[in-house]
Write a protein that binds this DNA or RNA. Sequence first.
DNA 1: GGCTGGTCTCAGCGTGTTCTCAGGTGCGCG
DNA 2: CGCGCACCTGAGAACACGCTGAGACCAGCC
Lengths: 230, 230
Amino acid sequence: MIGEVRVLVVEDDVRMAVAVRRGLRAEGFVADLAARGMEALGMALATEYDAIVLDVLLPDLDGFAVCRRLRADRVWAPVIMLTARDAVRDRVCGLEAGADDYMVKPFSLLELVARLRALTRRAPIERPAVLEVGSLRLDPTTREVWRGATEVELSAREFGLLETFMRHPGQVFTQMQLLEAAWDLGYRQRSNVVEVYVRYLREKVDRPFGAAGIETVRGVGYRLRRDGGG
Amino acid sequence: MIGEVRVLVVEDDVRMAVAVRRGLRAEGFVADLAARGMEALGMALATEYDAIVLDVLLPDLDGFAVCRRLRADRVWAPVIMLTARDAVRDRVCGLEAGADDYMVKPFSLLELVARLRALTRRAPIERPAVLEVGSLRLDPTTREVWRGATEVELSAREFGLLETFMRHPGQVFTQMQLLEAAWDLGYRQRSNVVEVYVRYLREKVDRPFGAAGIETVRGVGYRLRRDGGG
DNA sequence: GGCTGGTCTCAGCGTGTTCTCAGGTGCGCG
DNA sequence: CGCGCACCTGAGAACACGCTGAGACCAGCC
């Protein structure tokens, strides 16, 4: 694919790393994984990545050190640091070490993807695509949502959920997949948040318009009809 | 890409360098980075840059020396010098060495971009001199702002913030993006200045006119409506 | 020196958002 | 036809977020 975006993910928690990779791949990124700082340095020097996602806590070098050494070695790819719970010190250290952005764990894939898109966007010539499914329209940059001609106000979660659906119209998502995409990674306890938010969405983008965009696939999950439901 | 503007940023503070690069990229410039004077010389000879941003304090050659040698080597790209404090001597030295402009640290991205635009006179996207969004009008050169027919008085910060919004109408900015764009680079502590200034702006450009131009996108940031809010 | 305008911090408050829970509903299968 | 499970629904608790008013600080100016 032309314009393929290569991302290096440096993260020692295997489960997290794999989840991130899967998420990025689903969004069209190509992700390589590294579990240790030294390994990451080698890979970043060997391959020219478009972005680097860097965990702070690593078994050998910590993320700050990796970032500094990358910069010292003239690797200028944008770096997103993953810091533990809101440690302000971490955040400052990260930016001082030359990171471009930081995220606190836990974070959602959608958020990571959004930031990666922002950081890897070349010149602003390419108008970031507005998602359209049937009479539904969603603009990720302005965070506006329209059903036909009327604008719909959505909360952050509702927006994230709808964005997930609209990026893959027709595809069936399990509740688990939706949790991973639009909620914080590692949200593991049994909960019915997804059901609840699917309902909120329906009440905002379907019901007032007599539409039926979000379908329940019993025993499996949910999907957004390819025609947007009317 | 037609009209692409290439800038060389020579700066040894990694954090600063990376922030500047990101800011320039967001405005449609293409920025290369160099951390040392010698490196900068090599790059400037190899590539024809449209402008060079040059820190005075560098680990090897200082900025003045770099500038002189550039000119000696017939590199005529406009040079903006970054001096530490308001040292008049620096300024004189800089201009004598052949610099075209100078800025005192700390500075805001908005400022740097403005000077780059002035020096290259080739905005990456053709922008009219006066920004217009709905009934809002803002003239970056005269620093005047109107809502409809009546002029509005803004302080420097308020103006910078509004300019940022008006350069990208509709786009959602996080508080951090706004800090980087309209405040000094390196302003990194957690603070609610942005919230406060958004409020000041609203009280000057929205409230008196019964308008609602600046919208809060809860959990994300702020945006200026494409219609200016009325 | 007192005054003014600009910038920024802080703490308290209101409110929308997020999420849980308990009970209801209806589909699908035996 | 009836049972169980999956999903839906309404209500409400907890929380985070952004808004607000007050005031500290500083610089420039009368």
